[in-house]
Amino acid sequence: MQRLLLNIGNTHIQVATLTEHGPELLVCYDTPDIRPLEMLPVLEAMTTPWDAWAVSVVPPVRLSLEQRYGRRIRFLAPEDFPLIDFSPVDTSTLGMDRIANAAAARSLTNSAVIVLDCGTAITTESLDSQGRFRGGAILPGRMLQRKNLAAYTAQLPLIPLGQDVPAALGCRTTEAIAAGIDRGIIGAVREIVTATRRELESADCPVLVTGGDAPFFIRHLPELTPAPDLFTLRGIATAAPAV
């Protein structure tokens, strides 16, 4: 039986196979392209028996896949990660991608650790040295902030992402938007990391960075550490669901 791993996010859907060396990516879809299909082409093309472990933050996609593939896909829950103590938090509102990130971090270290996931939203997941999930922060990512400014104002345009930090004194509206968002988000992440380390009572705990926009933050915040590739999928692979 081939074990597959699915990470269903707001922007992308990753499908990997679980090998003895860890996850091996098969395909990455854009989530908006998959939603109207109500299936995953890679699963339709499978010629050998398979099952899958999945995490999803997109309820309509989860529902479509449950209806099409039934029990072959197991959507994981917090109790499927017994090495993490979730007692400090309300798991009913906790995204499973964040739980998978925490599990991946716990598989790498038994010390306190912070995960910074830079995607549509930017999230932090924090574990203390006892393996307790202590919570974290959520804020809009750089592109989401850009889209919201364009959508909810009359004259501010949608601007592309850049990898450089813009000058604080923007001489055009587009430059001012980039300065406000990109400099602001660097400051926000730095403050969140500082405060989280203080609350964890671990001033030098590592901050592992993953997600599509991770290169921007790694470039401009030297205290951050790149997470291993396929980080969320690695966390899914650590699950130990009851039979």
Rank of each mutant, 00 (worst) to 15 (best):
Q14E: 11
A203I: 02
I159M: 09
P157H: 03
A112V: 10
P49V: 14
T124N: 12
I218S: 07
E199T: 13
Q145V: 07
E79G: 07
D229R: 04
E175T: 15
F217G: 02
T31S: 12
T93K: 11
N101E: 12
L6W: 08
T17D: 11
A52I: 09
L116Y: 10
A102N: 08
S126K: 08
L5D: 04
A239D: 06
G187S: 13
E66P: 00
A54S: 15
E201V: 08
D85M: 04
Y29P: 05
G170T: 13
T31A: 05
N10S: 00
V115C: 11
L76F: 03
R197C: 05
V27S: 12
V207Y: 13
P206M: 02
P241V: 12
R106Y: 14
E223T: 04
G22R: 03
L5H: 02
A121H: 02
N7Q: 14
D33L: 03
V193I: 13
I8D: 04
G119P: 04
P36A: 09
G211E: 08
S64I: 01
T238F: 09
T196S: 07
K147L: 14
L200V: 13
D229G: 12
M46S: 15
E223F: 11
T232G: 14
A104V: 05
P41H: 09
V27D: 11
D90E: 12
G119V: 04
T31R: 02
P140Y: 07
S126Y: 01
T124H: 11
P228N: 00
R183F: 10
A240D: 08
P78D: 00
D51Y: 01
A154G: 02
V209D: 07
D164T: 13
T11A: 15
E44R: 11
R183A: 15
R183K: 08
S202P: 15
I138Q: 06
A45G: 13
H220M: 06
L4D: 08
I236R: 07
E201F: 14
D204S: 10
V115P: 09
R62E: 15
G70L: 00
M143V: 08
P60Q: 11
W53D: 11
L230A: 12
T11L: 14
F231S: 03
L161E: 09
P228L: 11
G131H: 03
Q67M: 06
L18M: 02
S92Q: 01
T174I: 15
A154W: 02
R234K: 02
L76M: 06
L149W: 07
E175W: 12
G141L: 13
L65F: 05
P36Y: 14
L224V: 10
S92C: 08
A104M: 12
P78F: 00
F216M: 11
L65K: 06
L149P: 14
T153L: 03
P82V: 06
I159G: 09
T232M: 15
A100P: 09
L18N: 04
E66Q: 08
P32M: 15
I159C: 00
Q130V: 06
L139H: 04
R172T: 15
L169I: 06
P206W: 05
E24D: 02
Q130K: 14
S64Q: 06
T31W: 15
T210E: 10
G162R: 10
S129E: 05
H220N: 00
T210L: 15
D204P: 08
W53C: 03
G95P: 00
P88L: 05
V55W: 12
P78G: 04
D213H: 03
L4C: 08
Q2C: 10
I177Q: 02
T120W: 01
L127M: 13
V113E: 06
